[in-house]
Amino acid sequence: MNEPFPFRQVFEGKWTQGAIPLVLLVALLLIIEIAAPGFLTGETVSLLFANTAVLFILATGVTFAILLGGIDLSIQAVASLASVILAQLLPSLGLAAFPLAILSGLAFGTLSGIVHVKLRVPSFVATLATGGVVTGLALWVSDGRAITIEEAGRENTAWINASVAGLPVVVLISAVIGIAAFLAQRYTRFGRQAIAVGAGEPAAWAAGINVDRTKIIAFAASGMLAAVAGVVLAARLSSGSPVLANQLLLPAIAAVIVGGTAITGGLGGVARTAVGALIISIVRIGMTFVGVNIFLENMVFGAVLIAAVAITIDRSKIAVIK
Protein backbone atom coordinates (compact mmCIF):
# COMPACT_ATOMS: atom_id res chain seq x y z
CA MET A 1 0.00 0.00 0.00
CA ASN A 2 2.73 2.42 0.94
CA GLU A 3 4.94 1.45 -1.93
CA PRO A 4 5.92 4.50 -3.93
CA PHE A 5 5.29 2.61 -7.12
CA PRO A 6 3.33 -0.66 -7.30
CA PHE A 7 5.96 -2.66 -9.22
CA ARG A 8 4.40 -5.90 -8.22
CA GLN A 9 0.94 -5.01 -9.44
CA VAL A 10 2.22 -3.67 -12.72
CA PHE A 11 4.30 -6.77 -13.28
CA GLU A 12 1.36 -9.05 -12.58
CA GLY A 13 -1.00 -7.10 -14.81
CA LYS A 14 -2.15 -8.94 -17.89
CA TRP A 15 -1.04 -6.25 -20.31
CA THR A 16 2.51 -6.25 -18.98
CA GLN A 17 2.73 -10.01 -19.29
CA GLY A 18 1.62 -9.60 -22.88
CA ALA A 19 4.12 -6.82 -23.49
CA ILE A 20 7.19 -8.52 -21.98
CA PRO A 21 7.80 -10.88 -24.94
CA LEU A 22 7.46 -7.99 -27.39
CA VAL A 23 9.92 -5.89 -25.41
CA LEU A 24 12.28 -8.88 -25.29
CA LEU A 25 12.01 -9.29 -29.07
CA VAL A 26 12.82 -5.64 -29.73
CA ALA A 27 15.69 -5.76 -27.24
CA LEU A 28 17.15 -8.85 -28.91
CA LEU A 29 16.89 -7.19 -32.33
CA LEU A 30 18.64 -4.08 -31.01
CA ILE A 31 21.43 -6.13 -29.42
CA ILE A 32 22.08 -7.94 -32.69
CA GLU A 33 21.92 -4.70 -34.67
CA ILE A 34 24.48 -3.12 -32.35
CA ALA A 35 26.72 -6.19 -32.39
CA ALA A 36 26.51 -6.58 -36.17
CA PRO A 37 25.43 -3.31 -37.82
CA GLY A 38 23.47 -3.92 -40.98
CA PHE A 39 21.61 -6.94 -39.65
CA LEU A 40 18.24 -5.27 -39.99
CA THR A 41 18.26 -5.06 -43.77
CA GLY A 42 15.49 -6.42 -45.96
CA GLU A 43 17.41 -9.47 -47.06
CA THR A 44 18.42 -10.82 -43.66
CA VAL A 45 15.02 -10.07 -42.19
CA SER A 46 13.27 -11.99 -44.97
CA LEU A 47 15.72 -14.83 -44.39
CA LEU A 48 14.88 -14.68 -40.68
CA PHE A 49 11.17 -14.92 -41.48
CA ALA A 50 11.76 -17.79 -43.90
CA ASN A 51 13.70 -19.74 -41.27
CA THR A 52 10.98 -19.09 -38.70
CA ALA A 53 8.12 -20.17 -40.98
CA VAL A 54 8.07 -23.91 -40.20
CA LEU A 55 8.52 -23.32 -36.47
CA PHE A 56 5.74 -20.74 -36.49
CA ILE A 57 3.27 -23.02 -38.32
CA LEU A 58 3.95 -25.83 -35.83
CA ALA A 59 3.69 -23.49 -32.86
CA THR A 60 0.43 -21.97 -34.15
CA GLY A 61 -1.18 -25.40 -34.13
CA VAL A 62 0.00 -26.28 -30.65
CA THR A 63 -1.14 -22.86 -29.41
CA PHE A 64 -4.75 -24.04 -29.67
CA ALA A 65 -4.01 -27.14 -27.59
CA ILE A 66 -2.18 -25.10 -24.94
CA LEU A 67 -4.90 -22.41 -24.85
CA LEU A 68 -7.27 -25.16 -23.72
CA GLY A 69 -4.90 -26.07 -20.92
CA GLY A 70 -3.75 -29.22 -22.73
CA ILE A 71 -0.60 -30.05 -24.65
CA ASP A 72 0.17 -31.76 -27.94
CA LEU A 73 3.34 -33.88 -27.83
CA SER A 74 2.63 -35.53 -31.20
CA ILE A 75 3.29 -32.58 -33.52
CA GLN A 76 6.83 -33.61 -34.47
CA ALA A 77 5.66 -37.13 -35.30
CA VAL A 78 2.71 -35.87 -37.37
CA ALA A 79 4.96 -33.42 -39.24
CA SER A 80 7.48 -36.19 -39.99
CA LEU A 81 4.74 -38.54 -41.24
CA ALA A 82 3.42 -35.79 -43.53
CA SER A 83 6.92 -35.29 -44.95
CA VAL A 84 7.23 -39.03 -45.60
CA ILE A 85 3.81 -39.22 -47.27
CA LEU A 86 4.64 -36.22 -49.45
CA ALA A 87 8.01 -37.61 -50.51
CA GLN A 88 6.51 -41.04 -51.16
CA LEU A 89 3.52 -39.90 -53.20
CA LEU A 90 4.93 -36.94 -55.17
CA PRO A 91 6.34 -39.05 -58.04
CA SER A 92 3.04 -40.86 -58.66
CA LEU A 93 0.40 -38.33 -57.66
CA GLY A 94 2.07 -34.98 -58.27
CA LEU A 95 0.37 -32.04 -56.59
CA ALA A 96 -2.38 -34.26 -55.15
CA ALA A 97 0.21 -35.50 -52.63
CA PHE A 98 -0.03 -32.18 -50.76
CA PRO A 99 -3.68 -32.43 -49.64
CA LEU A 100 -3.21 -36.11 -48.81
CA ALA A 101 -0.23 -35.41 -46.56
CA ILE A 102 -2.10 -32.59 -44.83
CA LEU A 103 -5.21 -34.74 -44.41
CA SER A 104 -3.13 -37.36 -42.60
CA GLY A 105 -2.30 -34.70 -40.02
CA LEU A 106 -5.94 -33.75 -39.69
CA ALA A 107 -6.86 -37.40 -39.20
CA PHE A 108 -4.27 -38.07 -36.49
CA GLY A 109 -4.99 -34.75 -34.77
CA THR A 110 -8.66 -35.71 -34.62
CA LEU A 111 -7.66 -39.13 -33.29
CA SER A 112 -5.62 -37.48 -30.49
CA GLY A 113 -8.61 -35.30 -29.68
CA ILE A 114 -11.04 -38.22 -29.59
CA VAL A 115 -8.72 -40.34 -27.43
CA HIS A 116 -8.19 -37.41 -25.07
CA VAL A 117 -11.83 -36.37 -24.79
CA LYS A 118 -13.89 -39.53 -25.25
CA LEU A 119 -11.59 -41.97 -23.46
CA ARG A 120 -10.71 -39.25 -20.93
CA VAL A 121 -6.97 -39.80 -21.19
CA PRO A 122 -4.86 -36.79 -20.10
CA SER A 123 -3.71 -34.94 -23.22
CA PHE A 124 0.03 -35.37 -22.65
CA VAL A 125 -0.35 -39.16 -22.50
CA ALA A 126 -2.93 -39.29 -25.30
CA THR A 127 -0.67 -37.30 -27.63
CA LEU A 128 2.46 -39.14 -26.50
CA ALA A 129 0.66 -42.36 -27.48
CA THR A 130 -0.68 -41.12 -30.82
CA GLY A 131 2.78 -39.67 -31.47
CA GLY A 132 4.18 -43.19 -31.05
CA VAL A 133 1.49 -44.62 -33.31
CA VAL A 134 2.31 -42.03 -35.98
CA THR A 135 6.09 -42.48 -35.67
CA GLY A 136 5.67 -46.24 -36.08
CA LEU A 137 3.60 -45.71 -39.22
CA ALA A 138 6.10 -43.22 -40.63
CA LEU A 139 8.97 -45.67 -40.01
CA TRP A 140 6.97 -48.46 -41.59
CA VAL A 141 5.92 -46.47 -44.68
CA SER A 142 9.45 -45.20 -45.28
CA ASP A 143 11.16 -48.44 -44.24
CA GLY A 144 13.12 -46.44 -41.69
CA ARG A 145 14.96 -44.38 -44.29
CA ALA A 146 14.99 -40.81 -45.48
CA ILE A 147 13.31 -40.46 -48.88
CA THR A 148 14.83 -37.95 -51.25
CA ILE A 149 12.43 -36.03 -53.44
CA GLU A 150 13.88 -36.66 -56.90
CA GLU A 151 14.11 -34.30 -59.83
CA ALA A 152 10.63 -35.22 -61.10
CA GLY A 153 9.01 -34.54 -57.74
CA ARG A 154 10.95 -31.36 -57.21
CA GLU A 155 9.04 -29.70 -60.06
CA ASN A 156 6.01 -29.83 -57.83
CA THR A 157 7.75 -28.49 -54.73
CA ALA A 158 9.63 -25.71 -56.52
CA TRP A 159 6.80 -23.25 -55.92
CA ILE A 160 7.30 -23.48 -52.15
CA ASN A 161 10.94 -22.48 -52.47
CA ALA A 162 10.18 -19.63 -54.89
CA SER A 163 9.67 -15.97 -54.08
CA VAL A 164 6.75 -13.69 -54.92
CA ALA A 165 7.48 -9.97 -55.08
CA GLY A 166 10.69 -10.43 -53.11
CA LEU A 167 9.00 -12.41 -50.35
CA PRO A 168 9.70 -16.14 -50.05
CA VAL A 169 6.55 -18.24 -50.54
CA VAL A 170 7.10 -19.97 -47.17
CA VAL A 171 6.76 -16.60 -45.46
CA LEU A 172 3.53 -15.93 -47.35
CA ILE A 173 2.20 -19.38 -46.40
CA SER A 174 2.98 -18.87 -42.73
CA ALA A 175 1.52 -15.33 -42.86
CA VAL A 176 -1.74 -16.63 -44.35
CA ILE A 177 -1.89 -19.42 -41.74
CA GLY A 178 -1.02 -17.00 -38.95
CA ILE A 179 -3.73 -14.51 -39.98
CA ALA A 180 -6.32 -17.25 -40.47
CA ALA A 181 -5.50 -18.75 -37.06
CA PHE A 182 -5.55 -15.30 -35.45
CA LEU A 183 -8.99 -14.55 -36.93
CA ALA A 184 -10.25 -18.03 -36.01
CA GLN A 185 -9.12 -17.55 -32.44
CA ARG A 186 -10.44 -13.99 -32.09
CA TYR A 187 -13.64 -13.92 -34.07
CA THR A 188 -15.08 -17.41 -34.43
CA ARG A 189 -17.23 -19.28 -31.98
CA PHE A 190 -14.61 -22.02 -31.75
CA GLY A 191 -11.87 -19.53 -30.86
CA ARG A 192 -13.86 -17.78 -28.15
CA GLN A 193 -15.02 -21.08 -26.71
CA ALA A 194 -11.48 -22.48 -26.70
CA ILE A 195 -10.32 -19.57 -24.54
CA ALA A 196 -13.34 -19.97 -22.27
CA VAL A 197 -12.59 -23.68 -21.81
CA GLY A 198 -8.97 -22.89 -21.03
CA ALA A 199 -9.90 -20.16 -18.57
CA GLY A 200 -12.27 -22.33 -16.59
CA GLU A 201 -13.57 -25.60 -17.85
CA PRO A 202 -16.39 -26.13 -15.31
CA ALA A 203 -17.71 -22.61 -15.96
CA ALA A 204 -17.46 -23.03 -19.73
CA TRP A 205 -19.29 -26.29 -19.49
CA ALA A 206 -21.98 -24.86 -17.24
CA ALA A 207 -22.42 -22.00 -19.71
CA GLY A 208 -23.46 -24.52 -22.33
CA ILE A 209 -20.27 -24.72 -24.36
CA ASN A 210 -19.71 -28.04 -26.06
CA VAL A 211 -16.36 -28.60 -24.37
CA ASP A 212 -15.69 -31.96 -26.00
CA ARG A 213 -16.23 -30.65 -29.53
CA THR A 214 -14.08 -27.58 -28.89
CA LYS A 215 -11.23 -29.77 -27.65
CA ILE A 216 -11.43 -32.18 -30.58
CA ILE A 217 -11.41 -29.27 -33.07
CA ALA A 218 -8.36 -27.79 -31.32
CA PHE A 219 -6.38 -31.03 -31.51
CA ALA A 220 -7.48 -31.57 -35.12
CA ALA A 221 -6.23 -28.06 -35.97
CA SER A 222 -2.97 -28.78 -34.17
CA GLY A 223 -2.46 -32.00 -36.15
CA MET A 224 -3.35 -30.37 -39.46
CA LEU A 225 -0.99 -27.44 -38.99
CA ALA A 226 1.75 -29.84 -37.90
CA ALA A 227 1.27 -31.68 -41.20
CA VAL A 228 1.42 -28.39 -43.12
CA ALA A 229 4.70 -27.63 -41.35
CA GLY A 230 5.99 -31.10 -42.25
CA VAL A 231 5.08 -30.60 -45.91
CA VAL A 232 6.79 -27.21 -46.07
CA LEU A 233 9.87 -28.62 -44.33
CA ALA A 234 10.02 -31.57 -46.76
CA ALA A 235 9.72 -29.25 -49.74
CA ARG A 236 12.48 -26.98 -48.42
CA LEU A 237 14.86 -29.88 -47.69
CA SER A 238 13.77 -31.94 -50.74
CA SER A 239 13.48 -34.94 -48.46
CA GLY A 240 11.02 -36.74 -46.23
CA SER A 241 12.08 -38.76 -43.19
CA PRO A 242 10.41 -40.36 -40.16
CA VAL A 243 12.64 -38.29 -37.86
CA LEU A 244 12.63 -35.09 -39.94
CA ALA A 245 10.87 -32.86 -37.40
CA ASN A 246 12.00 -34.54 -34.16
CA GLN A 247 14.14 -31.57 -33.20
CA LEU A 248 11.21 -29.17 -33.55
CA LEU A 249 8.94 -30.30 -30.70
CA LEU A 250 10.80 -28.41 -28.00
CA PRO A 251 11.35 -25.13 -29.94
CA ALA A 252 7.67 -25.14 -30.99
CA ILE A 253 6.37 -25.52 -27.44
CA ALA A 254 8.99 -23.06 -26.20
CA ALA A 255 7.82 -20.54 -28.83
CA VAL A 256 4.25 -20.73 -27.55
CA ILE A 257 5.24 -20.38 -23.89
CA VAL A 258 7.90 -17.72 -24.43
CA GLY A 259 5.35 -15.75 -26.44
CA GLY A 260 3.25 -15.49 -23.29
CA THR A 261 0.59 -18.18 -23.60
CA ALA A 262 0.16 -19.76 -20.18
CA ILE A 263 0.50 -23.54 -19.93
CA THR A 264 -2.56 -23.46 -17.67
CA GLY A 265 -4.70 -22.26 -20.58
CA GLY A 266 -7.10 -19.40 -21.19
CA LEU A 267 -4.47 -16.72 -21.63
CA GLY A 268 -2.52 -15.97 -24.78
CA GLY A 269 -3.01 -16.55 -28.46
CA VAL A 270 -1.63 -16.80 -31.96
CA ALA A 271 -0.25 -13.25 -32.07
CA ARG A 272 1.86 -13.97 -28.99
CA THR A 273 3.07 -17.19 -30.58
CA ALA A 274 4.31 -15.20 -33.59
CA VAL A 275 6.41 -13.07 -31.24
CA GLY A 276 7.59 -16.20 -29.40
CA ALA A 277 8.61 -17.96 -32.62
CA LEU A 278 10.63 -14.91 -33.70
CA ILE A 279 12.33 -14.78 -30.29
CA ILE A 280 13.30 -18.45 -30.56
CA SER A 281 14.62 -17.92 -34.09
CA ILE A 282 16.64 -14.87 -33.12
CA VAL A 283 18.08 -16.60 -30.06
CA ARG A 284 19.11 -19.44 -32.36
CA ILE A 285 20.79 -17.06 -34.81
CA GLY A 286 22.32 -15.15 -31.92
CA MET A 287 23.82 -18.33 -30.46
CA THR A 288 25.47 -19.23 -33.76
CA PHE A 289 26.65 -15.65 -33.99
CA VAL A 290 28.15 -15.57 -30.49
CA GLY A 291 29.76 -18.94 -31.19
CA VAL A 292 27.72 -21.22 -28.95
CA ASN A 293 28.12 -24.81 -30.10
CA ILE A 294 25.15 -25.93 -32.19
CA PHE A 295 24.74 -29.05 -30.04
CA LEU A 296 24.13 -26.88 -26.99
CA GLU A 297 21.03 -25.29 -28.55
CA ASN A 298 18.77 -27.93 -26.99
CA MET A 299 20.18 -27.17 -23.54
CA VAL A 300 19.44 -23.48 -23.91
CA PHE A 301 15.91 -24.10 -25.19
CA GLY A 302 15.24 -26.59 -22.38
CA ALA A 303 16.27 -24.00 -19.79
CA VAL A 304 14.33 -21.23 -21.56
CA LEU A 305 11.23 -23.43 -21.60
CA ILE A 306 11.43 -24.11 -17.86
CA ALA A 307 11.96 -20.42 -17.09
CA ALA A 308 9.11 -19.30 -19.34
CA VAL A 309 6.69 -21.85 -17.87
CA ALA A 310 7.61 -20.76 -14.36
CA ILE A 311 6.89 -17.11 -15.22
CA THR A 312 3.65 -17.50 -17.21
CA ILE A 313 1.93 -20.26 -15.26
CA ASP A 314 -1.22 -19.38 -13.35
CA ARG A 315 -0.76 -21.30 -10.12
CA SER A 316 -4.14 -20.37 -8.72
CA LYS A 317 -5.68 -22.72 -11.28
CA ILE A 318 -3.87 -25.83 -10.11
CA ALA A 319 -4.84 -27.16 -6.72
CA VAL A 320 -1.95 -29.62 -6.59
CA ILE A 321 1.07 -29.30 -8.84
CA LYS A 322 1.93 -32.79 -10.01
Binding site: A129, T130, G131, G132, V133, V134, T135, G136, L137, L139, W140, D143, G144
Partner: peptide, 9 residues
Protein backbone atom coordinates in the same frame (compact mmCIF):
# COMPACT_ATOMS: atom_id res chain seq x y z
CA UNK B 1 9.04 -50.40 -37.32
CA UNK B 2 5.40 -50.94 -36.47
CA UNK B 3 6.34 -51.65 -32.82
CA UNK B 4 5.89 -48.06 -31.68
CA UNK B 5 2.46 -48.02 -33.29
CA UNK B 6 1.45 -51.10 -31.30
CA UNK B 7 2.93 -49.65 -28.09
CA UNK B 8 1.03 -46.41 -28.65
CA UNK B 9 -2.25 -48.26 -29.03
Amino acid sequence: YIQQTVQGL
